[in-house]
């Protein structure tokens, strides 16, 4: 195939930077990560440049996102999770901006790479597990044995809970990665139908427009789901007995 729909996910090495035997080349993915961080920083700090009591449009947008995430964290993990707020906020903003910037044509979608999403999900998984054991000690294992279960069922249930616990980083990362990748691939595949169909190419174009709208919704939704699930995992670490 000449133009593979997966060509857009190609990693291009721009600057070679070997650090202590590690390959830390500056790639197009890294470029967009930097762009994402700058955009989030710009969004937040320029919204708050004249932090006034009566907010303007931009400032209320920043405050809305702040309160939205604060409420989400509070609702799903309780008031003790307050310390995680900066992390969840950065996570949501990073994923959201990554997904939305990826929707712009000719850009690169950072979150469409399993390495990135798995690194995020793995970090969340390890962090939540370490925090859970540090906070509850061995009591964190109560997470695996729900209360009020007959003793006969317990071994089976512990195994199931254990599997569902260890599968968390995989589902968390693959969900985001698969959504982003599938969306972009489908857009590319359908875009490939436009020119060969000639005059009938208008059909796929209208479909593409509708699909782009759906993909924007999915981009926001996946960022939301990614952070909601993080909040739920944090809640498990704070209150292990369901």
């Amino acid at each position: 195939m000449e133009h593979s729909p997966l060509e857009q996910f190609e990693i291009k090495r721009l600057i070679e930077i070997p650090i202590a035997g590690l390959d830390a080349a500056f790639t197009n993915s890294s470029t967009f990560m930097v762009i994402i961080v700058l955009s989030v920083w710009f969004f937040v700090s320029f919204g708050m440049r004249r932090a006034s009591l009566v907010p303007g449009r931009w400032q209320s947008l920043v405050e809305m996102s702040y309160e939205f995430i604060a409420k989400m964290l509070h609702d799903s993990a309780g008031p003790q999770a307050r310390a995680f707020f900066p992390f969840v906020f950065s996570l949501f903003m990073f994923v959201l901006f990554a997904n939305l910037i990826g929707m712009i044509p000719y850009t690169f979608t950072v979150t469409s790479h399993i390495a990135v999403t798995f690194a995020l999900a793995g970090f969340i998984f390890v962090g939540v597990t370490v925090f859970g054991f540090a906070r509850n000690g061995a009591g964190y294992l109560r997470l695996l044995a729900p209360a009020g279960i007959p003793a006969v069922m317990l071994p089976l249930l512990v195994v199931i809970e254990l599997i569902s616990y260890f599968i968390r980083p995989i589902t968390l990362s693959v969900r985001l990665f698969a959504n982003m990748m599938a969306g972009h691939t489908i857009l590319k595949v359908i875009a490939g139908f436009v020119v060969p169909l000639g005059i009938f190419g208008f059909g796929p174009v209208f479909f593409l427009i509708a699909l782009t709208g759906l993909e924007v919704i999915v981009a926001v939704l996946q960022a939301f789901v990614f952070s909601v699930l993080t909040c739920i995992y944090i809640n498990d670490a704070i209150h292990p007995s369901h």
Binding site: D23, A24, H113, A115
Partner: peptide
Amino acid sequence: TFSPQIIWL
């Protein structure tokens, strides 16, 4: 491609 991406992430 994993290592550059993860390091830059």
